[in-house]
Simulated scan of single mutants.
Amino acid sequence: MTPPRTPLDDAYQACDAITRREARNFYYGIRLLPPAKRAALCAVYALARRIDDIGDGDLPTAEKVSALADVRQSLRRPPDPADPVLVAVTDAATRYPIPLGAFDELVDGVEADVAMDAQSDTAACFYETFDDMVGYCRCVAGSVGRLCLGIFGSSPDPEAARYADVLGIALQQTNILRDIREDLQHGRIYLPRAELERFGVELVLDEHDVLVDKTGGLAELITFSAERARGWYAEGLQLVPLLDRRSSACVTAMSGIYRKLLEDIAADPPSVYHQRRSLSGWQKAAVAARALSGRAPVGAGTS
């Protein structure tokens, strides 16, 4: 006889539904985990999604700041029973050594997005150097890598958390290259000012909302940035041998999807000028299948 469902079961189910709906890339890896780890990671994703959605939503700046502050405080008190995401995250943190403080770093990163939105009505560079941009990536993506590692677990290695952090930063660099056009449409520029100047790039859209690249400098910058991101992937993926088989498959699948996307962008930089690049469902499924079999994703090198 099947035991009756509990409110906690419903909370985890709600987080799974959010992840299936919103994690168009990550869910291909998450579903490779055993049920308990999959449920915990869906809970972590659902809260991270909530934080991101506050920053990207339509609320006035003051209300975004207030909502982010409320998220911070919500992790410091018993969860509201009516909030399934917080109920599930709180429970998951009793089952796995999830570093909940990393959510504070994620909030820090989203607060930086809100500050970027508020600084002017027109797009302007917010990060002066690549190191400045990496600091942002560490907040919004490295933090998620470390949260995931708390669920995966790993062989004893003092570098494990750093590898998880670096891999998250690699994924975020891919996002930034993919979303140059979309971010500019929303008044955001993540590429550092120093590198835009080095390659002679002024980010502007034409009357059709297509990125303008009269000199080819933007394509050169994307190629340069993609090559650098490959190095971050190579370093971060040193985490994989430290994980159990299912967790390593999850990480290999998620990173493999983003690495394939990075390679597609690097092969044709102007393709991001007018569209948001993505892989098809069958391409993502193929990467996940290769990850579960223990084979490296297509296009995955050592640099």
Rank of each mutant, 00 (worst) to 15 (best):
V71R: 06
T6G: 13
P78T: 06
L218Q: 03
A67N: 00
P60Y: 10
V201A: 04
R246I: 07
F199P: 00
F224E: 05
E182T: 07
V44N: 05
R76L: 12
V107Q: 02
G281C: 13
C250S: 13
V89C: 14
N25W: 02
C15R: 13
A226W: 05
V65E: 14
F199Y: 03
G135M: 11
P79H: 08
T90Y: 02
P156C: 11
P35S: 05
P241A: 09
R193G: 00
T94P: 07
L41K: 01
V87D: 08
L211R: 00
A296F: 03
R77Y: 00
V272P: 05
Y233W: 05
A36T: 05
V240E: 11
G216S: 01
A118L: 04
C15D: 11
L33K: 03
A170V: 15
A36M: 03
L242C: 06
R178E: 12
C148S: 10
D183I: 01
D132M: 07
P81K: 09
L262T: 08
V298T: 06
Y27W: 10
S120C: 11
E220N: 12
W232Y: 13
A23P: 09
K64I: 06
R162W: 12
P158V: 09
A253F: 03
M1H: 15
P3R: 15
L86R: 06
C15V: 14
Y96A: 10
L292Y: 10
P79K: 12
A17Q: 03
L8P: 12
L221W: 01
C137Y: 09
T223P: 02
M133T: 08
S255E: 08
G57F: 01
I222D: 03
S303H: 14
K214A: 14
D104I: 05
T19L: 09
A36E: 04
I18A: 06
E220C: 10
L205K: 10
S293N: 10
D9W: 07
T223Y: 00
P60W: 08
M1E: 15
A40S: 12
R77A: 14
